[in-house]
Design a protein around this nucleic acid. Structure first.
Lengths: 231, 231
DNA sequence: TAGATTGTTAATCGATTAACAATC
DNA sequence: TAGATTGTTAATCGATTAACAATC
């Protein structure tokens, strides 16, 4: 693309109910606000100001108000936000008004930990299947599930209606399994495999790499401390 | 801060060996380059161009070269980069020239999975301790370690020389444990607890929240698909 | 009304990209 | 030398922040 013809964004004008694009950084923070609001709700708190919600979420109130402005105006000037009301609207904006069905591929330590992790169910994600390639593991119980053979990936994904997949498997096989998952029609993938995965356009891939997180910490630690130089 | 007096950055001029600040986004990507380089190395590839390294890392070559420019000039024009040489320099820039000692607090599903995860050791992180509060769990074997009582947190951190801590415990107790870890002198913390933690200045805290990752996927999925509306 | 707090604007800051001169 | 590829510059793009008018 050199000079003329900037790609015209077809859904930008007004065009019906087309929800506006929320900046990625704001989407990530909206999940924090939702979490904070839900814990306020659990404490019986009915109203919050942008200042207190921002503090509970670890962001500035300026950032908070700007982020909320992307999804609408759900506050009252001079008063604040009604907790439940705002929580519902953030959930709606994030697409969390119905449950999502999650399949986990890989029943090693991490896969099992994820399958049993209460934090998914409580936030609207149903784990509906878990797979492994090892015949010694297939058939084992993990939480409420039995481990399926990864050979049966496609039919089981179809039968369970899974629309999200978590990859918790070795780097060496991640791309192969990822391809099969995509071919089976899944468009949302969360990968814990420490490798770069290629996916076609229209497939959403997010990555979590725990060793990478430690490496980033190491960088900052080295700058400030300069620890036990075992000379 | 209104008009005059932009904060003068004390270490910007030249001033001795003071390593320049690398932008956060670049630090995160340097870990990807390092991973890609090490897998090139394992394949016996000795030289890479910015184009091929960028592709293997899932970024643009422009971004790659800019990122590398923050740590120095380790390539040869017309030729590319020597894999091992660049790998060493990135590792040095990230503070990965010596091993880091990691303690895990929480020996539940996730904590155990992390303790056994081979990806840490292979990238220079030694897991030296794992803690739990449950007396039924204390003393159990997890990988090469025995679970310590979290009551003994301070002495065990000291004895093992842990300089990084991973929190893999419930949201309700995370802040308390975090405070103790900080008081014990640890300045690098990776938290998997789904809660905002407050830490003093000078402590590096990174957060991984798996449910949040799924929520972000849900937002994008809802925008493109609009799945199984169970009307 | 007076006090409080939102929603929005405009300014600043940082990150990404394209392009190309430098140079192997 | 001719071809290739880095390192760097300048332009663009997106994110954050401060400030305040709108308004409950």
């Amino acid at each position: 693309m050199t000079s003329l013809e900037s790609t015209p964004s077809a859904f930008d004008g007004d065009g019906g109910a087309a929800a506006k694009q929320i900046p990625p950084a704001a989407v990530a923070r909206l999940t924090l606000y939702l979490r904070a609001l839900n814990s306020f709700l659990a404490e019986g708190i009915e109203t919050v100001s942008s200042d207190s919600l921002a503090e509970a979420s670890g962001v500035s109130s300026s950032t908070l108000r700007k982020d909320l402005s992307y999804i609408g105006s759900y506050g009252t000037r001079g008063v604040g936000y009604e907790v439940q009301y705002l929580s519902r609207h953030i959930a709606a904006a994030l697409g969390l008004t119905h449950d999502w069905k999650v399949a986990i591929v890989g029943a090693g330590n991490l896969g099992k930990a994820l399958a049993r992790y209460g934090g998914f169910e409580s936030r609207g994600f149903d784990v509906v299947a878990i797979f492994d390639a090892d015949q010694m593991v297939v058939g084992n119980e993990v939480g409420w599930l039995r481990v399926s053979d990864v050979q049966d990936l496609e039919p089981v994904l179809k039968r369970t209606g899974a629309n999200m997949v978590v990859l918790a498997l070795p780097a060496t096989v991640a791309q192969d399994v990822c391809n099969r998952v995509v071919a089976a029609g899944v468009r949302s993938i969360l990968s814990f495999a420490p490798v770069v995965l290629q996916v076609p356009d229209g497939v959403n891939l997010r990555k979590v790499d725990m060793a990478t997180e430690l490496q980033i910490l190491a960088y900052h630690a080295q700058r400030t401390q300069t620890p036990g130089r075992t000379a």
